[in-house]
């Protein structure tokens, strides 16, 4: 048990050092503008029935080589999530490499539970492909648990994190369509054998030719995404579990 703990600590240390090292080594990104998006959500699953909500996302390139991403999601099913990601990145001859250190907290008020996730992952983004692999730690705890007690929570110390997204066009284009799969989305961390699949796209209300001028005017982007989550994928008899759609607008400045 102690050995496992020491080994876990070593892994955590190595990953933290990697994150810091990547940050120090990181290069400037071409995407150096702040973006704020607000999306409405509608979904259905057998557990919650129909639900709706809102997702607020902020992309903040706070310094030249480091982004901070933040999400807040409020769902009518009485579930509330906040996430923050620290993302150092550096350019490669093709695409760029990034490393995400994420903390996510979900208050499942309907069930008097909270789900706390910490993750470290490495990603590689190219024009058409964005792939991300990493590890996450999860603790599910009773909201009314006594914090000096060792009971009332479940920890899952190792979960594989993976995400693959394929774009029809490079991100600099005025519109795009993408498909993806993975066990993580900005506000959901599923177990490794429960992948989600999504199809989405965006459309800039002003052409990119205008945006690439020196003035870099503020502009709006329309967003839409459909996501499905099967139950029993891999080694069970799979069926559709959750269907969720998001649509909204992003403002870049």
């Amino acid at each position: 048990m102690i050995l496992t703990f020491i080994r876990m600590k070593k892994i955590t240390w190595i990953l933290c050092l990697l994150a810091i090292g990547t940050g120090c080594w990181a290069q400037s990104s071409s995407d150096s503008r702040y973006r704020l998006s607000l999306q409405g959500e509608v979904g259905h699953n057998p557990t919650w029935g129909y639900y709706s909500g809102a997702l607020l996302h902020a992309h903040m390139p706070v310094v030249k080589n480091v982004d901070i991403l933040a999400d807040i999601e409020l769902l009518s099913s009485n579930v509330y999530t906040a996430e923050i990601t620290f993302r150092p990145k550096f350019s490669l001859p093709v695409g760029h490499l990034y490393m995400d250190a994420t903390a996510l907290g979900t208050i499942v008020a309907r069930n008097q539970l909270m789900d706390i996730v910490g993750s470290l992952s490495l990603g590689y983004q190219m024009d058409y492909v964005n792939v991300q692999v990493g590890w996450f730690y999860r603790t599910i705890a009773e909201t009314n648990r006594s914090w000096d007690s060792e009971s009332g929570y479940v920890s899952d110390p190792f979960n594989l994190l993976y995400r693959l997204q394929i774009n029809a066009r490079p991100e600099r284009e005025r519109w795009n369509v993408y498909v993806g799969l993975g066990n993580v989305t900005p506000t959901q961390y599923e177990r490794m054998w429960a992948p989600m699949f999504w199809l989405g796209g965006y459309y800039d209300l002003r052409p990119q030719s205008e945006l690439s001028s020196n003035s870099l005017p503020a502009h709006f982007r329309l967003l839409a995404e459909v996501m499905v989550k099967p139950a029993g994928f891999f080694h069970l008899d799979a069926s559709l579990y959750n269907l969720q759609t998001r649509f909204g607008i992003a403002y870049t400045f």
Binding site: R110, Y189, R191, L236
Partner: peptide, 27 residues
């Protein structure tokens, strides 16, 4: 049959309930 909690790798590649259903059943 399907277990709720996954706290180690002993379960190999057996999948279990979605998180929404895990929360609900535990409650």
């Amino acid at each position: 049959h399907t277990h709720l909690w996954k706290i180690d790798q002993s379960q190999s590649h057996t999948s279990n309930f979605a998180m929404e259903e895990t929360y609900e059943l535990a409650d």
